[in-house]
Amino acid sequence: MLVSETTRRGGAPATSFKVLIVASLRYPIGQPFAGGLEAHTWSLACGLRARGHSVLVAGAAGSDTGVVDYEFGELPVIGRAERPDITEHPLVSRAERAAYAGLTDQLRDGLLGSFDVIHNNALHPVPVERASTLPSPMVTTLHTPRLPWAGRLLGSPARATVTRAPGRDPSFVAVSRATAALWRPLINPRVVRNGVDTTVWRAGSGGPGAVWSGRIVPEKAPHLAIDLARAAGIELTIAGPVIDEDYFAGAITPRLGPRVRYAGHLAQADLADLVGSSAVALVTPVWNEPFGLVAAEALACGTPVVAFARGGLPEIVDPAVGRLIPPVSGPEWRRDRLTAAVRAVTAATALDRRAVRRRAVARLGRVAMIRGYEGVYADLTRQWNAA
């Protein structure tokens, strides 16, 4: 093993790890980020390096070479009818499987070097299937609810296809308690919350309007944020990549106007400026958000959050930093829930921005996330060596 003991100041780790991060292939890792998974991978790599660890990131072609060291796959472009983030198009599926199989073959044969830990940040089953063939322990971060392959690979010992050898099993970490619960009883993942770089997501002065940010897709439901902002009598700015063009054309474009604008797909620094200059961030998913990175980003800017109480969001948003509101189950608001949501917006905008940021830095900063993963790596390598 290449783990080396060091002595550092400033709370740095006593153990330095050599880590390979396996990224998702659905989008390159680079700004402006396609979504939270890509932003998290970037933050994880930069945070580990800042703490003194040696990191190699394997990611999609077209990634930022300042962060991604090894490009191992490029997926075919598909038609507008297919969403690239969730498509099961046969051409995409074959190319994705082949890319991950090739990468794990290279890792097995030592062609990329030796590592203390392989950190699988992808959502594909191949790295999990092949974990027992690799020369280093692997931890997989679960960024989503249970995926279709989970039952086949991680079911009961009688039907699971992943080798269950003491100390050699793939290890799992969930980004929230809510996400961990969705993967049980197949596995019992440890929880390490995502963290944001609070030097990028810096304190903002606030402003008169609201902001909504994220991937523009039906399950994120920015149209509900537009309706809430109008009912509350405040302006709204929407920012993020248009992943579902039909949804944008049908549900967002008709709602745009003088008090609702689309700012485009912004680089992180520009997005942080927008979020920091807003009075409140609206987070309105109609699915169970596994974590809620956009909420963490807003809170780091001192911007209070009003969010649906779904998935991991109740673990981020509490009365000290924002307001949780009952989820909307259909395509539109119920009148009573919209009225209550307007009151929540008023209450959230009255919160002390400095207190909001302090709480976010302590609970949701990148350093807290990296320390959590350092603990995972230490336990994983210790079990691996003992086995």
Rank of each mutant, 00 (worst) to 15 (best):
I118Q: 03
V305M: 02
E82C: 00
P241F: 07
R334K: 10
L123H: 09
G302D: 11
P222T: 02
G264Y: 10
A281R: 00
G66N: 12
A272H: 01
A45L: 06
E82A: 12
V306S: 00
R80D: 15
Y373G: 03
L266A: 05
P145W: 13
R261W: 01
R255G: 14
T339Q: 10
Q383A: 15
E245I: 00
V19E: 00
R230F: 00
G47N: 03
G155H: 03
V342R: 00
I238N: 03
R146K: 14
P314S: 03
S213N: 07
R366M: 15
P28Q: 02
V305N: 01
R152N: 07
A14G: 15
S93A: 14
T140W: 07
T381P: 10
A300V: 02
L112R: 01
L123M: 08
H89V: 08
E74V: 08
T144V: 02
P285G: 04
E289A: 08
V173R: 09
T6V: 15
A263G: 05
D273E: 12
R359E: 10
P290V: 00
T179A: 14
L313T: 06
T199Y: 04
R83T: 02
R159H: 10
R8G: 12
L142M: 10
P32C: 05
I234A: 00
S24E: 14
M138D: 00
T133S: 12
H223L: 06
V173I: 12
D336H: 13
S176N: 06
G167F: 04
V376K: 05
A95F: 08
H119D: 10
A263E: 10
C46T: 13
A45H: 08
D352Y: 07
W42D: 09
E235P: 12
A221T: 02
L274V: 09
R354D: 14
R159M: 04
L186S: 04
A174C: 12
P13A: 05
R357V: 12
L228P: 02
T237Y: 00
G209D: 15
Y70Q: 11
R353F: 12
P84F: 09
S205E: 15
P304M: 07
A99K: 05
L123V: 13
A95K: 06
D336S: 14
T65E: 15
V283K: 06
H53A: 03
V321W: 06
G52R: 02
Y262R: 03
A267V: 07
S205T: 14
L44V: 14
V22P: 09
V196Q: 13
E219K: 15
Y100E: 01
R357Y: 07
V342E: 00
D244G: 08
V305S: 04
G102T: 03
L142V: 11
V22S: 09
P254M: 12
L112D: 06
V294H: 03
Y377F: 15
G214C: 13
G11T: 06
A101V: 06
M138E: 01
N188Y: 13
W201I: 11
S63K: 11
I243E: 10
L123D: 11
V306I: 03
G276D: 05
D318Q: 13
H223G: 08
A229C: 01
A249T: 12
A378K: 04
L182Q: 13
F72A: 09
L154P: 09
H119W: 08
I370R: 07
E5T: 12
R261K: 09
D270V: 06
P32N: 07
D69V: 05
I316D: 02
L123N: 11
L56A: 12
